[in-house]
Amino acid sequence: MTYIKSKIRHPKQPKNSIGYVKADYEGALSTLCAGCGHDSISAAIIEACYEMSIEPHRLAKVSGIGCSSKTPTYFLGNSHGFNSVHGRMPSITTGANMANRDLIYLGVSGDGDTASIGLGQFCHVIRRNLNMTYIVMNNGCYGLTKGQDSATADFGSVNKSGTENPFPAIDLAGLALELGATFVARSFSGDKTQLIPLIKAAMSHRGFAFLDVISPCVTFNNNMGSTKSYEYVRDHIPATAAHEFVPQEEEILISYPGGSNTSVRLHDGSSIQLHKLNANWNPIDRNTAVNRLQQAKINGEILTGLLFVDKDSRDLHEVINSVDQPLNSLRKELLCPGTSALNKINDGLR
């Protein structure tokens, strides 16, 4: 059952720059287990969209199947959403984006949805650099089918029934880097201060923005020995940097004590400011990102933060040279070549 939250508005509720209150970005009441990491990610999405002043109807939510893929019901209730079939969110989003390049596309998936049944579509949507944000709510298991190991479960991680996973994990962030993703970040559902700016930056990126968010499953994979439990993640989480997202019209004010600061200006004029925690890492160099990720793996760490961004990439519409107007807005007059053209074609076939 889904419950609809009452939409009582307090007059004093703050509004964002386009006049919407936070409640305008909320959705139905979540039916996920209490404490599920996915709910925290939904909350971060709501926060990010509210703060970025996105018009809710200019964003489309697309997902596959799983507990994670249910979450689009629980945020942005004024946006159209599409809960498709298992592992196929990328293709639905690709078609939707081809039809209307003017909307923001937010894809939500799970680790089962992405790393197993949907691995092929995940790889190919990266190759095409589709302009979308792709969030994986990664809990290392199949929540909705009751906790089986997923392909992102770490080697040796112990699941609720006490079995050690005998297979190596697919590292989705590493894979995305390898396949040429133009924005790759990793975060943790329990770290709002990092997650929110990363979601904002991902949505401002033109091209494919991938966010691998570790999101513990409290019911099936939060036990001792699991490498995706809250406790384990908190204990093993270094970050690439402290992040701040700076909208286009604002000046960059933040500065951190110590360390070195970098700012990456994104396509739409906004920027993400990074307070780098490691001097040997450069967010616009794919190689250092791959190396850092590999090194973290060897150290048994879960590296989070912005890993890589290529801010000048060409998205799929540019590659296929489609018109600037959304294709779904073209009417018959612009699409149908008419009788005289057809007569010419007929003549050519005689």
Partner: peptide, 29 residues
């Protein structure tokens, strides 16, 4: 503009092909 009033995507398989078609039609193209 020399730009295309069409988008043709060679998909990775038939599942993706029809998924794209569903996404596009859902969105009014």
């Amino acid at each position: 503009t020399g730009k295309n009033k069409f988008a043709i995507i060679q998909a990775e398989d038939e599942l993706a092909a029809i998924g794209m078609v569903i996404g596009a039609n859902w969105n009014g193209a």
